[in-house]
Amino acid sequence: MAKYFAIIIDEKRFAAIKGTSLEEKIEPIFGGALKRLVIEVPDELGQKTIEQFSKARFDARGFIEETPAAFKRLVFKKIVELKSLSPEVLEKALEELPSIKEEIEKEDRELPVPDVDISDILELQRNPVQKPTQ
């Protein structure tokens, strides 16, 4: 059974593939709220990929998920270089895995906190409906 590896296409990534044949392959998801490119890979390559990362797994949709963000960046780099969504992209990225080892290790320890104003939810939490009763 085939497995899938998806790369979310944000503005920066879109700029890198705009005007190429890859642009046509972008799929909208969640009503266009997100966009992605999908690589279809044989089961064996999917298995090999998840074995490289402790948290990685196939989800219920058959997608390879919870790989490090650094690996996704590397896969996207390979997509741009090869101008392709073939399994070869993933194979090449796996070959270069040692080059991002430190980035991956760092990712397990820290991820930058998004700059988001959360004052509205803190206000809501100030008077919770459920209160401690012990």
């Binding site: 998806a6 979310i8 944000d10 998801i29 969640f30 009503g31 709220a33 997100l34 797994r57 989800d59 219920a60 949709r61 997608f63 998920e65 919870e66 790989t67 490090p68 963000a69 996704k72 990712e107 991820l111 930058p112 998004p114 988001v116 959360i118 509205d120 939810i121 809501l124």
Partner: peptide, 29 residues
């Protein structure tokens, strides 16, 4: 589009804000 908890965790991992179609904004906060 199907939901996947792993997919959503992947979005956060990449520093992307899940759209309201996936997370209520207050839940994300």
């Amino acid at each position: 589009s199907r939901y996947s908890g792993s997919f959503i965790r992947g979005l956060l991992n990449e520093g992307l804000t899940p759209p309201p179609e996936i997370y209520r904004p207050e839940v994300y906060k």
